[in-house]
């Protein structure tokens, strides 16, 4: 059987909220060491990669590897039943046809249970090669979210440049061109590999979808290398990571 209990169920709710506009039906892999999920959006431009380690759960048991095909759209509807401070338990039998979700408040006097039907999905698993990212930056997730939203009003595409002393987000649209440059000497942002600079362009529409995860973590890590998809990574406190990959835009 499989059973995983999180004391703070709103974390799981936030994760589902943060991926539901990108991916619809996904396979969640439950193994003795944790839960993971990898899925692409329908246009194959973005990919969601989630890993939650068993250590982060209050209780975790998974006797054998299970693939749980689930509609994220429907799961998001069920997550509306999770209130602030509720714990959440996910459980199912070994040959499951549904996933049971149990939410309980702190006083233990209110319990909500819902069985979500499972679906069979063709898995479309992509192998992500080992990549040495030449440019990495960690910045305030709220600031990154705000910046992407504001730039989207001006342009569909943003060019990222990460260098020794700054990170620059440049846009060019019908109304003109401009950029936001953030000095990395401030505590909020820092480059780990300062000697290299990479410039890559990305669709802001996707970045705005990724930013729905900003409430999961105060910080977001951006990783880039030449001619490689961008990685936007949020650490889920003591549980694991939620990573988004975004294919770049190229000029022919």
């Amino acid at each position: 059987m499989f059973e995983a209990k999180l004391t703070d169920g709103t974390i799981f709710k936030k994760i589902i909220e943060a991926i539901k506009d990108l991916v619809t039906d996904v396979n969640i892999d439950a193994t003795p060491t944790g839960l993971s999920l990898q899925a692409m959006d329908s246009s194959h431009v973005a990919l969601v990669n989630l890993h939650l380690g068993m250590e982060g759960f209050e209780r975790y048991r998974c006797d054998r590897n299970l693939t749980l095909g689930i509609s994220i759209t429907n799961l998001a509807k069920v997550m509306k039943l999770v209130n602030q401070n509720d714990s959440i338990t996910l459980k199912c039998e070994d040959e499951p046809t549904y996933l049971t979700i149990v939410c309980q408040n702190q006083k233990h006097d209110r319990t909500t249970q819902f069985n979500v039907n499972l679906i069979t999905l063709d898995s479309e698993h992509l192998g992500i090669p080992e990549t040495e990212y030449t440019s990495e930056i960690t910045m305030n997730s709220g600031e990154f979210s705000k910046l992407c939203k504001e730039l989207y009003a001006l342009s569909e595409t943003v060019e990222f440049e990460i260098s020794t002393t700054f990170v620059k987000f440049a846009v060019e649209g019908e109304i003109g061109s401009g950029s936001i440059k953030i000095q990395t000497s401030a505590d909020e942002a820092e480059t780990s590999r300062p000697e290299d600079t990479v410039k890559l362009s990305f669709a802001l529409r996707y970045l705005n979808l990724f930013n729905k995860a900003y409430s999961l973590s105060n910080q977001v890590k951006l990783s880039m290398a030449a001619e490689t998809p961008l990685v936007v990574e949020y650490e889920v406190e003591s549980l694991g990571t939620l990573k988004y990959y975004l294919a770049p835009k190229i000029t022919d």
Binding site: M40, G127, A247, K249, I250, T251, D252
Partner: peptide
């Protein structure tokens, strides 16, 4: 604004 690539260009199918 450039052409949007897809992830299959960079990642391999399994």
């Amino acid at each position: 604004q450039g052409r949007q690539t897809t992830l299959q260009l960079f990642f391999s199918g399994e």
